[in-house]
Amino acid sequence: MPRRRPGAIRADYPTAPVWGYRPPDRIPGLSADTSLEILRVEKRTGQFVGSALRRYQEFLSPPRRWPLYPVPDDCPCPSCCLDDVRNARDVLEDALAQLPPRARAELRRRVMALDKEYRRRTLPDLWSDQESWWRRRLTVN
């Protein structure tokens, strides 16, 4: 019995995705499954996890030898809240608590590498009374 060509088999399937909408954009450095789980968390919580991860990476991206200082931002609107890299790190921490185990492990590996660089390139604030370690760093006043 002759085999059907792959193109003939693909022609039998619909061209529209099974899930009914365009697949989510992948977050660079993360798998498609993790990106999908992050999208689900974003829809559930209203936080921008992908944007927070990009903001955290952008803050640490220029290779420099001198220290970096987070800029505090007191603007309450959601579009400006990620200007302060510490708020972006808060969003990532909340997302890590809500993701399923595999996606959490993958995102945690990525965030831990960024945390190591953040600790290396920022200075500790010894008199800070903040709860999280990333907020106990010197800022620009």
Rank of each mutant, 00 (worst) to 15 (best):
D73L: 08
L39S: 14
R137K: 15
E42P: 04
A11E: 13
L53Y: 09
R65L: 15
A95C: 06
A32Q: 12
C77E: 10
Y13C: 06
G20E: 07
V18R: 11
R108E: 15
L96F: 03
T139E: 13
Q47T: 08
R54L: 14
A97R: 12
G50I: 05
S61E: 15
E37L: 04
V91M: 06
I38C: 05
P101C: 01
A88I: 03
Q47G: 01
V41D: 06
A11C: 01
R3E: 13
S132V: 11
R89D: 06
E58Q: 14
D83W: 08
R64F: 04
G50S: 15
A113W: 02
D74S: 11
P24S: 09
T122W: 11
A88N: 08
L99E: 08
L99G: 04
L68W: 08
D115Y: 09
R86P: 13
R104Y: 00
A105C: 02
D25A: 15
C77W: 04
Y21M: 11
D84Y: 01
S79V: 10
T45K: 05
A105S: 12
V71F: 08
S35P: 12
P76M: 03
Y56A: 11
R22F: 07
S128Y: 03
E117F: 00
P101W: 00
P28D: 11
Y118F: 15
Q130S: 13
L126D: 13
C81G: 06
S61M: 10
